[in-house]
Write a protein that binds this DNA or RNA. Structure first.
Length: 867
RNA sequence: GCGGGCGUGGUGAAAUUGGUAGACACAGCGGACUUAAAAUCCGUAGGCCCUAAUCGGCCGUGCCGGUUCAAGUCCGGCCGCCCGCACCA
């Protein structure tokens, strides 16, 4: 029996074939600025992956989105840079080394190879010629050179700082690695330890980072707000309160505080120091009670719930300070657990009447509460104090707007005005100055870890800290390390850290800390732009469209913004604004239902099968509970392996589905039936082209109504898809493709007069499908004899005349309710439309015998008759 | 507590400047083709009421109110959910 003519599209055969064709044509290689001609540039980038070894559906969605943008830009004539690489340093490699005895480097490069093979199957338009991994010595050597340049510029310093210390693993943990006060790996309670750490002066750029982030119009509002809150600017007064009486030798005679409410200075009732304030520590040295109090404060957990419940704790030092405006008055100095050492100066003045925390504290320790702000409206006043007598009647602190009272020279002023008057006065008295305080703190970059970029400095007993000379870079990680001892293998290595001082030649020691891996991802996009050509770097930067998860809204995206500024200021990159990413899109996650077996364990989707309305375990037949729809994760076993999907349906189906159902910024739920639906659609599209492949394009277009109608559908669809892609509304673009395909399918019933319009539509459809389903588009393109490769073809040109209709259908409302529809010429005048509408039988039924009060005619939109 | 976002059918969602609410898809239902199945194609679908059926009517975008000829969209006030930050002075 002869083989029947193929009536189905076979992705398994077609997809590899077309990828090979693209590779042969070097289609996705970015052109150098010199070769680009007049084409504008478009740098499209997705956040590069950590090489865990397996691609997951979240990757597929992320890279599919970037690919839509990159391929669309290419079709629109841009010179596109769309590179890929590996964020390759990090803890999982060391954990693998500890658990399985593999070298972190071997483990990482094996994972890269495995993932690259998976990447290849997705049909992404990537320029692999610029690939690198951040653990390549070439890359981190360059990072070390940048570090030294930053150091020269004064952007790097060392200081003692508190860190999270895991006493079992003997290492510092990042804040994210501390879960409920315990180490995420060891489960041991984390201790606070003081260690000498390296810091970047990101706070030098706080103002600029804050100001500029507001101007990034192509960033999501949410991310801009999160960064602004993280930087946390507040204007206020930094001032000193003189301590009354004799102070012990070597101790400051003043206490410096920061406040945003200098207008309430007359309401001050005490001073509070942080338990970690240097003065507190000094006093505690010879005061057992105070030391015990400090220990008590340290016990309170750091989790949100703990802080919520934590009562206000205080310790009276017996010390007093002088009130600046009322020298005869003194204020007691307390140690209070709610005062943080990490913000401002670690000390505050308290005005209980107008700050809830101060209020709670004052109530507990029976301190005066003196109202100095009179609320603007009576309701607010009565809520906060029962009668206008003395402050004891207050029920809560009043923090709203109002007028200053009980405050001598500030009386009667509005809060803002009072603030500036108070600041000026304190400045005149020489007790302080108006300042701006940021929540943002300098970036601690030291990690006591092996698998990271070594910090390129040498410690010499005589010369102190000496930078490694540029000629000696990169400072490479030693290959022969062991992980059998806890702690940093670089410290345990027998010889690596021994060296000679570049300055004096005496024996010296290398820094054994490595850089936080966020450094690696803070400048990789500049390296993609060019390894060593500053002009090419300047040509590509900034990234025009960056795509990634919102989980990086603060850390990565803030560090990168700092890095490009620092690089600019040391002359490493020509980027005046300092902004690395002109456009940012944060995509949603891929979620999936979760399943639990009768004994409570999680089950994989593949372990269950349908049974009537419910689900049962495939093996045992036991009932399965369907749980919440959650982010795909190994622990909940609700992952779907992209490789399996590609084998079953093809890459195009996977790409299509993750983009089709939800708006890109929202989560999308992976469902088997949804994927099957996408696969069905692939066949449907293919059949449109397969049917045409048996016909010949007559070339000249008929002007029959049916042909023109079909052409209108096609041209409007191209237009709609174009804008939808530009606005990141991929789900809308996909809906349009569905409608368009149905119209082409229907046209198969038409006669020869629509044949040309069908060919035109198909040719346009193939090109519009390319960003989403590039393999299928290519196959379809070849079925209708398209010229060259579809992935290289230009975006279809729309004929404007086909976008506007000759006649329009208008709904007719009577009193705002739709009663009829009329069809009128596009050019019809308002009067004509009104006359036609009033003559419509369905309308007459509602207006007969009534007074027409008004007729609103919005041409092209609607008619509303008011009776 | 502060900041941001969201609330529309059984489900995911459309509706771009106020102008026919529910496009498109998933699941469902009905039908065609088939010996049968798969595959494919076509149709149907917010709720309630009236009717034998058609026709028709009313209600409907979290709740209450407002502006307007017209509100998912704008304004005021509530309720609920999600995300981020959080004793930040």
């Amino acid at each position: 029996m002869g083989e029947a003519m193929a009536s189905r599209y076979d992705p398994q055969a077609a997809e590899p074939k077309w990828r090979e064709a693209w590779a042969d044509a070097e289609l996705f290689k970015a052109k150098s600025p010199a070769d680009a001609g007049d084409a504008p540039k478009a740098y499209v980038l997705e956040m590069f992956p950590y090489p865990s070894g397996r691609l997951h559906m979240g990757h597929v969605r992320n890279y599919a989105m970037g690919d839509v943008v990159a391929r669309h830009k290419k079709a629109k004539g841009y010179n596109v840079l769309h590179p890929m690489g590996w964020d390759a340093f990090g803890m999982p490699a060391e954990n693998a080394a500890m658990e399985r005895g593999v070298h972190p480097g071997d483990w990482t490069y094996q994972n890269i190879a495995a993932m690259k093979a998976q990447f290849a199957k997705l049909g992404l338009s990537l320029d692999w010629s610029r690939e690198f991994a951040t653990c390549d010595p070439d890359y981190y050597g360059e990072q070390q050179r940048l570090f030294l340049k930053f150091m020269e510029k004064g952007l790097v310093y060392q200081k003692k700082a508190k860190v999270n210390w895991d006493p079992v693993d003997n290492t510092v943990l990042a804040n994210e690695q501390v879960v409920d006060g315990k180490g995420w790996r060891s489960g041991a309670p984390v201790e606070q330890r003081e260690l000498v750490q390296w810091f970047f002066r990101i706070t030098d750029y706080a103002e600029d980072l804050l100001e500029e982030v507001q101007k990034l119009e192509r960033w999501p509002e949410k991310v801009r707000t999160m960064q602004a809150n993280w930087i946390g600017r507040s204007e206020g007064l930094q001032m000193r309160f003189p301590i009354v009486g004799q102070v012990p030798e070597g101790q400051d005679s003043e206490i410096e505080i920061f406040t945003t409410r200098p207008d309430t200075l007359f309401g001050a009732s005490f001073i509070a120091l942080s338990p970690d304030h240097p003065l507190t520590i000094k006093m505690a040295a010879d005061n057992e009670d105070l030391e015990a109090f400090r220990a008590e404060c340290a016990k309170v957990g750091t989790s949100e719930a703990d802080i919520e419940k934590a009562p206000k704790l205080g310790f009276d030092t017996g010390m007093k300070v002088v009130h600046p405006f009322r020298p005869e008055e003194t204020l007691p100095v307390y140690i209070a657990n709610f005062v943080l050492m990490g913000y401002g100066t670690g000390a505050i003045f308290a005005c209980p009447a107008h700050d809830q925390r101060d209020f709670d504290f004052a109530r507990k320790y029976d301190l005066p509460i003196l109202p100095v702000v009179k609320p603007a409206d009576k309701d607010a006043a009565s809520e906060h104090w029962v009668s206008s007598g003395d402050g004891d009647d207050m029920s809560a602190a009043y923090t709203g707007p109002g007028t200053i009272m009980n405050s001598e020279f500030l009386d009667g002023k509005a809060i803002d005005q009072a603030k500036s008057v108070a600041i000026t006065k304190i400045e005149e008295m020489g007790l302080g100055e108006g300042t701006v305080n940021y929540r943002l703190r300098d970036w601690g970059v030291s990690r006591q870890r092996y698998w990271g970029c070594p910090i390129p400095v040498i410690h010499c007993d005589d010369c102190g800290i000496v930078p490694v000379p540029e000629a000696d870079l990169p400072v490479e990680l030693p290959k022969d390390v062991s992980f059998d001892k806890p702690g940093n293998p670089l410290v345990h290595h027998p010889t690596w850290k021994n060296c000679t001082c570049p300055k004096c030649g005496k024996p010296a020691q290398r820094e054994t800390d490595t850089l936080d891996t966020f450094n690696d991802s803070s400048w990789y996009f500049t390296r993609f732009a060019s390894v060593d050509d500053p002009e090419e770097r300047a040509y590509w930067l900034p990234v025009d469209q960056y795509v990634g998860g919102v989980e990086h809204a603060v850390l990565h995206l803030l560090y990168a913004r700092f890095f490009t500024r620092a690089m600019r200021d040391v002359g490493e990159v020509d980027l005046p604004s300092g902004e690395p990413f002109a456009g940012l899109f944060t995509q949603g996650m891929v979620t999936h239902e979760t399943y639990k077996s009768a004994d409570g364990g999680w089950l994989q989707p593949s372990e269950i099968e349908a049974d009537g309305d419910g689900w049962i375990e495939r093996e045992s037949g036991k009932p399965v509970t369907v749980g919440a729809i959650e982010k795909m994760s190994k622990s909940k076993k609700n992952t779907v392996d992209p490789d399996n999907i590609i084998v079953t349906f093809g890459a195009d189906t996977a790409r299509w589905f993750v983009l089709s159902d939800s708006p890109p910024e929202r989560d999308v739920e992976w469902t088997q039936s949804g994927a099957e639906g996408a696969a069905r659609f692939v066949q449907r599209v293919w059949s449109v082209f397969n049917t045409l492949s048996e016909a010949t394009d007559p070339g000249a277009s008929s002007d029959s109504d049916a042909a023109i109608a079909l052409r209108r559908v096609s041209h409007k669809a191209v237009q709609a898809i174009d804008t939808a892609i530009e606005e990141f509304r991929f789900n809308s673009a996909i809906a349009t493709v569905h409608e368009w395909t149905s119209a082409l399918k229907k046209a198969e019933q038409g006669g020869d007069d629509v044949l040309s319009a069908r060919f035109e539509g198909a040719s346009m459809l193939a090109r519009c499908l390319t960003p989403f389903m590039p393999h299928l588009a290519e196959e379809c393109w070849s079925l209708i004899g398209g010229e060259g490769l579809c992935s290289a073809a230009a975006w279809p040109v729309v004929e404007d005349s086909l976008l506007v209709e000759d006649s329009v259908t208008l709904p007719i409302q009577v009193n705002g309710k739709r009663r009829a529809e009329i069809s009128v010429a596009k050019t019809a005048s308002k009067d004509d439309i009104e006359a036609t509408a009033l003559n419509e039988p369905a309308v007459k039924a509602f207006i007969d015998g009534k007074d027409i009060k008004k007729v609103i005619v919005v041409p092209g939109r609607i008619v509303n008759i008011v009776v």
